[in-house]
């Protein structure tokens, strides 16, 4: 007993898993549908909104990052920061998914064409 996980440890694990599942369910049920455009924000200011249905490449922040939209999915293909975390992130297409480049304060968020109630709460 001394070396294993105790009762309270298991309770802690249970709570963490429950919260994770709950947040996932909320995300899947409330968001997730009707995604059609991406919004690009730099330092909290909207730079532009782009349609996911048309293939294009977008320069963000005057070229520090390049976002590629292809087959209804958005992916960061270039960034000038050393860590390249946003470039390694997978392509996003679901509502409320986002790609974030912290060093350049750039946020790419997938959104539905019409604002839902969830948007008002989330933003």
């Amino acid at each position: 007993m001394k070396n294993g996980l105790k009762k309270k440890d298991w309770m802690l694990i249970g709570i963490i898993v429950c919260v994770a599942v709950l947040v996932t369910l909320v995300h899947v049920f409330i968001g997730g549908k009707g995604a059609s455009k991406v919004t690009v924000k730099v330092d909290g200011v909207i730079q532009g909104t782009y349609s996911l249905s048309e293939d294009q490449e977008i320069e963000i922040n005057g070229g520090t990052n390049i976002l590629q939209i292809k087959n209804g999915r958005a992916k960061m293909i270039e960034a000038d920061c050393p860590d390249q975390l946003c470039v390694h992130q997978k392509a996003v297409s679901m509502n409320h998914e986002s790609i974030i480049c912290l060093p350049n304060k750039a946020v790419v968020t997938v959104e539905s064409s019409e604002s839902s109630e969830y948007d008002a709460v989330a933003n």
Partner: peptide, 23 residues
């Protein structure tokens, strides 16, 4: 801190991943 820096709450969907990974 990431939410404060980029001034967005849309990273909230990322919470489950980070919870399980941290665990």
């Amino acid at each position: 801190v990431a939410m404060l820096v980029v001034e967005t709450f849309s990273v909230a969907y990322y919470v489950p991943v980070l919870l399980i990974a941290g665990m």
